[in-house]
């Protein structure tokens, strides 16, 4: 299983699309690693600087309809190449969400109100997250010592993809 713990990158906007995550001009690359420098290059978000803000982050927290637009799996790959294996959001576009689990990564949906609480409490602070896959819970921590535990749920099917490391081996074995 991939790593789902670490520092949080807050992206406080809805409808962040795949062209913002990785622009089409980089789709000519044939390796995941080659995408690394271009993650979120075209993101429209006040105060966000990809060169400064992505480094060292392991998890993204964002709003609704994340990953809308293109089917490009380059979007999850660009995150993976930067050490980000999990996105937590109040909603996902279908293809992006499926691509994440197909790669053994996690796209976890939380209720809108819960996401709002996390943003209000922690956005702007250095925040880290630990993910307990047995208990199905996240713990958010900030340097002041404040902590917040948030339960989450993913389907057994999605969990089996995360554990198997993706859909190709699963499907080839079963169908």
């Amino acid at each position: 299983m991939k790593n789902f713990n670490g520092d949080v990158l807050f992206l406080d906007r809805s409808d962040i699309n795949t062209d913002e995550i990785i622009p089409a001009k980089y789709l000519t690359e044939n390796s995941k690693e080659a995408l690394r420098p271009y993650l979120l290059e075209d993101l429209s978000l006040d105060g966000f600087d990809p060169g400064r803000d992505i480094s060292g982050k392991s998890v993204v927290l964002t709003r609704s309809n994340f990953g809308c637009g293109s089917s490009r799996e380059h979007a999850p790959w660009a995150f993976e190449a930067n050490g980000i294996n999990m996105v937590i959001a109040s909603g996902f576009a279908r293809i992006f969400r499926q691509n994440m689990f197909n790669c053994g990564m996690m796209a976890v949906e939380l209720p809108r109100d819960t996401v709002e609480i996390i943003f209000n409490k922690f956005n702007g602070q250095k925040t880290s997250i630990t993910t307990d896959m047995e208990k199905m819970a996240f713990t958010f921590n900030v340097p002041t010592g404040e902590a917040l535990e948030i339960p989450f749920s993913i389907s057994q099917y999605d969990l089996s993809l995360v554990k198997a490391g993706g859909w190709v081996e699963y499907a080839d074995k079963n169908y």
């Binding site: 089917s71 490009r72 293809i95 691509n99 190709v168």
Partner: peptide, 10 residues
């Protein structure tokens, strides 16, 4: 339906 590369691969 549009899918990602892994779904396409399968």
């Amino acid at each position: 339906a549009g899918v990602g590369t892994t779904d396409l691969e399968v």
